[in-house]
Design a protein around this nucleic acid. Structure first.
Length: 574
RNA sequence: UGCCGGGUCGUCCAACGGCAGGACAGCGGCCUUUGGAGCCGUUUAUCGUGGUUCGAAUCCACGCCCGGCAGCCA
């Protein structure tokens, strides 16, 4: 609705991280003619999450800072695991995060012919051979982390024979697993990745993009470096687990005829407390129905965050704040939430919503009177204007804003106590009406001071508490979904013996409030619109919303000093 | 235990060999028509032992601890 348009902050990460420093040096030396081209290369076998957002912001951010380019490349070299569904989702998510690959959308499968030609070149140079060892035998021959491997009996096949065999592999004359093309490097190499790694394997599977054209597919180590080089990538940024693969990356490019040799640089992947960023475990959460799909607002997936009400700007600010390094680190999820609140505070329109309604009757307010107050939309942004908010004799306030016997320090409504209704009047509690049988509070009777109209009085007397409210007859019904951390433990994987991360699931991660009352201006709210429910937090309209029923998701709570005081009080014997 | 990488406040990130700084969290206060926001203040750290040096988080040596690697996954 009236959400402030905040331009994406273009400031580079501050101070420059080790990758940017290195790139700066390269540019200064005029390496690659001073050009910077990066790439984001997801495998389309899952949905993107906040960890990918770190890589996306890094790669696209650097390209933007150097007026270079960042390619989006789908790394689709394994037809058994990849699906078009994921490809579409990845494109959508990257764009939503605020990045544009221009014309540079590629697929590793675009290069299948080139890969094949380069494999033949290695064969002809005597640097690759077809190996008929079984997978088990290959493992045995590879040796272990501490003992060297030994040469395959097929290692000395002449180039001509290898070439013919490889061609037969391509034509589908072999069964899966029967043989494989291997780089001929060194079976005693201390780096296991260099012990004649497989570079092509047989998979009689149709590929989402190339169909039945191929039944042999290149391995990551062979395809990735060549893809980078074919696209003239200057800096190939990847996560730490590929550090051991860099020698192989370089070996392949050094041994084929290709003019470009990108520099691989590794950085630590993102880890966050109170959530999971493993593809496998995310998939498990979805498949076991622990969450409601890939866009469940409790998930750290980009779609989940989007549905939760996160902004791409907040995610970008978070990525800049955490920096990039090689140390394995675990970021407190509070840091993410901080950047979210900071962004939403500037841009989200304020609105009044009562989550747990308690009826209040203003006994001295004329029965059929109604008036309208003008409420500022966002005190942080005067340009956001105001909206009308109707007031009437019967209102709802928050149940927790009234206490019959208030504890020390409680500023809200209590018998005989005067508080301010935001934007409206001062009211004083005169009576508490209870259900005779249950003792449950049914409604509160108050008087109002007509002289306090607008929220202050001529005598200048002060009230400690200011409550939000909605007029009963004008209020809209809404369902509100209160989300909190999916896991109770900071590290869900640190589970008691015999249990897994599921033992850390937070049973309160979703609490649905079906009968909330919200102010009438929300009638025109659209799915995705973000608001601050005053004194509660940030909420956004869920796509489940229908014309008949508004549904809101809680994006984040506001800082709640009172709740914190209460919590602390409980911990200590007074 | 072969190879690779990494150890700076509770957390994350800084610091040409020259006063260890910032952010988040915490704590205290101010302010407030959101117990929000904002503002001010504040606690806390260089893995260890030697060495080089006028001077070491930074360089060297030896340890210690943590992570990654033995897919025809990426």
């Amino acid at each position: 609705m009236n959400e402030a348009k905040i331009p994406a902050p273009e400031a580079p990460a501050n101070p420059p991280d080790f990758i940017r420093k290195r790139i700066r040096e390269d540019v200064a030396k005029n390496k690659n003619h001073g050009r910077v081209i990066t790439r984001f290369p997801p495998e389309p076998n899952g949905y993107l999450h906040i960890g990918h957002a770190k890589a996306i912001n890094l790669n696209f951010g650097i390209a933007r800072e150097y007026q270079g380019a960042c390619h989006l490349r789908l790394d689709d070299t394994n037809p058994e695991k990849e699906e078009q569904e994921y490809i579409d989702a990845i494109r959508e998510d990257v764009r939503w995060l605020g990045f544009d690959w221009g014309g540079h959308l590629y697929h590793a499968s675009d290069y299948y012919d080139r890969f094949y030609t380069y494999a033949v070149e290695l064969i002809e140079k005597g640097l690759a051979y077809v190996c008929h060892l079984s997978p088990d035998a290959i493992r045995e021959y590879r040796g272990t982390l501490t003992t060297p491997g030994k040469n395959s009996p097929f290692r000395q096949r002449p180039a001509d024979e290898n070439r013919a065999l490889f061609e037969r592999m391509r034509r589908g004359e072999f069964k899966e697993g029967e043989c494989v093309l291997r780089a001929k490097i060194d079976m005693e190499h201390p780096n296991i990745n260099m012990r004649d790694p497989a570079i092509y394997r047989i998979k009689h599977a149709a590929h989402p993009r190339t169909g039945d054209k191929w039944c042999i597919y290149p391995m990551y180590d062979f395809a990735h470096c060549i893809s980078d080089a074919l696209e003239n990538i200057t800096h190939s940024l990847c996560t730490l687990e590929f550090e051991d693969h860099r020698p192989l990356y370089d070996w392949v490019l050094d041994n084929i005829t290709i003019p470009c040799h990108p520099q691989q640089i590794e950085f630590a992947r993102l880890e966050l407390t109170h959530t999971l960023l493993s593809k496998r475990k995310l998939l498990q959460l979805v498949q076991e129905g622990i969450v409601n799909g890939w866009d469940d607002p409790r998930l750290p997936t980009i779609r989940g965050l989007r549905r939760r009400g996160y902004t791409p700007e907040a995610i970008g600010a978070f990525c800049r704040a955490i920096g990039v390094d090689k140390t394995n680190s675990v970021i407190d999820i509070g840091t993410l939430e901080y950047h979210l609140r900071e962004d939403l505070n500037r841009r989200a329109q304020r609105v009044m919503a009562v989550l747990h309604p308690l009826k209040v009757v203003i006994v001295n307010y004329p029965d059929n009177q109604a008036e309208t107050f003008s409420a500022e939309n966002n005190p942080e942004d005067p340009a956001s204007g105001t909206r009308p908010v109707p007031f009437a004799k019967t209102l709802y306030i928050e149940q927790e804003d009234f206490q019959e016997s208030p504890p020390k320090g409680y500023f809200r409504l209590a018998p005989g106590r005067e508080v301010r209704l935001k934007h409206a009047y001062y009211i004083t509690c005169q009576a508490v009406i209870k259900d005779e049988a249950t003792g449950e509070i049914k409604e509160i009777h108050c008087t109002y001071d007509p002289g306090s109209r607008g929220g202050s009085t001529p005598d200048g007397r002060r009230v400690k508490g200011t409550l939000h409210w909605v007029a009963a007859e004008h209020a809209l019904d809404a369902e509100v979904r209160l989300y909190s951390h999916l896991f109770t433990r900071p590290d869900p994987n640190q589970a008691p013996a015999g249990q897994d991360f599921r033992s850390a699931l937070n049973p309160q991660s979703l609490v649905t409030l079906p009968a909330c009352k919200v102010e009438p201006s929300l009638r025109v709210a659209m799915a995705g619109d973000r608001f601050q429910f005053m004194r509660h937090g940030y909420f956004c309209v869920d796509p489940d919303t229908t014309p008949a029923r508004l549904v809101f998701n809680r994006t984040a709570t506001l800082r709640d000093t009172w709740a914190k005081m209460m919590q602390k009080g409980q911990g200590q014997p007074e």
